[in-house]
Design a protein around this nucleic acid. Structure first.
Lengths: 119, 119
DNA sequence: CATGTTGTGTAGACATTCTACCCAGAGAAC
DNA sequence: GTTCTCTGGGTAGAATGTCTACACAACATG
């Protein structure tokens, strides 16, 4: 009982952009790589659907937070992938999103678990 | 620099129901009391708008997670307020939401701050 | 009795995620 | 050299839940 089962969980609205930006801190990546990274790093808890990912990437690009470029890659440069990179604005945005996230989750934690001391 | 300003923040979608349920653990309350409690406990970071709160309460009631009853209260029982209470199902739901929230935020934390050890 | 405050409510805009499709390129199978 | 599968990128439309902006009734105060 009380299995604490690790099922997939729907993404909280607004978190995807932040996760994408964070993933790109390590360098350029294309869509599939970003999705895979998020899934693996979250230990398969967070699933990033195509239907959420690509609109998010286009959103972020339009806002100037990331830049996109088709580039050949793979062995012998056989195929083109759309690589995304953080812009300076994206880096700034990420920092503020992270800070907001921290505040937000701490505020919610105060409500959920009023007794617990902050670490 | 890096002001860490405490501005109001929009609620993350899906969190309001959980916060309402948690508030009712202390006993019955009406809408305004719930909103006030959340705002105060979050140190004014989380604002609960009427337009979000009442639909949320109706949602929760329809799902059988809370029950509603108009009751007279105040000095000399002058006025009726709509008091909400947790149901057994609501308590169960709250527990599972809390556990899901913990998993979720830990998963996101792993992505945002990969280096940090879990406390 | 006019006005302000409190408490409850709805309507419609908006943002973001989801499911469910579609398509193109590359490699393997046949 | 077609066909099949896998990978990578994409869109359309539904669902969800928040927001802003109204509306209104009960009560208190002047």
């Amino acid at each position: 009982m009380s299995k604490e089962q690790k099922e997939r969980v729907e993404l909280l609205q607004g978190t995807l952009d932040m996760l994408v930006l964070r993933t790109l801190v390590f360098g350029a990546a294309h869509g599939h790589q970003i999705a895979k990274y998020i899934q693996q790093t979250s230990e398969e808890l967070l699933q990033v659907e195509h239907g959420s990912l690509y609109p998010a990437l286009h959103r972020l690009e339009k806002k100037g937070l990331i830049s996109a470029k088709w580039e050949k890659a793979g062995k012998e440069l056989k195929r083109e992938y759309k690589y995304y990179r953080l812009t300076a604005a994206g880096r700034k945005k990420l920092a503020s999103e992270e800070s907001k996230w921290r505040q937000m989750t701490e505020a919610i934690a105060r409500i959920l678990w009023p007794g617990e001391a902050e670490s």
